[in-house]
Design a protein around this nucleic acid. Structure first.
Lengths: 136, 136
DNA sequence: CCGAATCCACAAGGATACTG
DNA sequence: CAGTATCCTTGTGGATTCGG
């Protein structure tokens, strides 16, 4: 039924209301971040990404790449050489995004311990028998 | 069977490699952002969130709230009044996160048009018959 | 009013095989 | 090398129902 060529993910949804949700919707993909940071160092090839991201499947990498390209975050360049060569590089806006993303990384780094602690406390709270809650 | 109480989403996965992926994993939930920004204005009640977020189901709101609480992003306060009352408020680290998230919003606002343009171009490119690509 | 339990639909994501 | 197509498992999220 030729929707395009691959099966294309969730497309766009009704995320117009919140621009943040919209950008997250682009970046929330399990692999989008990995691709963006990998490409931040400079142009990368398909297989480079495939090995760099560690865990991504061909299919998902392709899907992610397509989405990012469609949104103008990645620029795809094909070199019609004998062994096919394709390079992906960040667009200017994507470079900006990556920079912005760094502050998120920073936040995550700073609070990683707090989060772990909170989780442990929460889980412990729920794991014990309620009758223990009176302490002693 | 009794994993905890509800069915709990993907939990945590192997996102240790990338802290950014980890935080995104918390925030990437379709509703997490909405909850965080809604709670940023001050303590909010369950039904307030339910109406504010517009589109969220009871289940997803509960799940989102639980996850956020577990990660130490939300503080849940129960008032044992006759009509039960529960308030959710951001923790300090969550407030920081929301601030950081603003830069993402900013980015999204600035490039919303670029993204739309890019998408339109991409779709147009793929929609036309390939034989047209030679132009004239 | 707040939330948990169950059931169900769909889409994201993984494995594999095939192609240019 | 750089994808594409197909199959299948799992997660995600909605609707509904019941309880504190």
């Amino acid at each position: 039924m030729s929707r395009r060529n691959t099966d294309v993910p969730h497309d766009v949804m009704a995320t117009e209301a919140c621009p943040l949700a919209e950008v997250l919707d682009h970046v929330a993909g399990k692999w989008s971040i990995g691709v963006l940071v990998a490409a931040a160092h400079g142009p990368v090839r398909f297989t480079e990404l495939e090995r760099a991201i560690e865990g991504v499947s061909r299919r998902m990498l392709t899907l992610t790449l397509r989405r990012l390209e469609r949104d103008g975050l990645l620029r795809r360049t094909v070199y019609p050489t004998v062994p096919p060569k394709v390079e992906y590089r960040l667009t200017d806006m994507a470079a900006e995004l990556v920079t912005t993303l760094r502050s998120l990384t920073d936040w995550a780094e700073r609070h990683r311990g707090d989060i772990a602690t909170s989780r442990a406390a929460y889980d412990a709270e729920r794991a014990v028998d309620p009758s223990e809650s009176v302490d002693g």
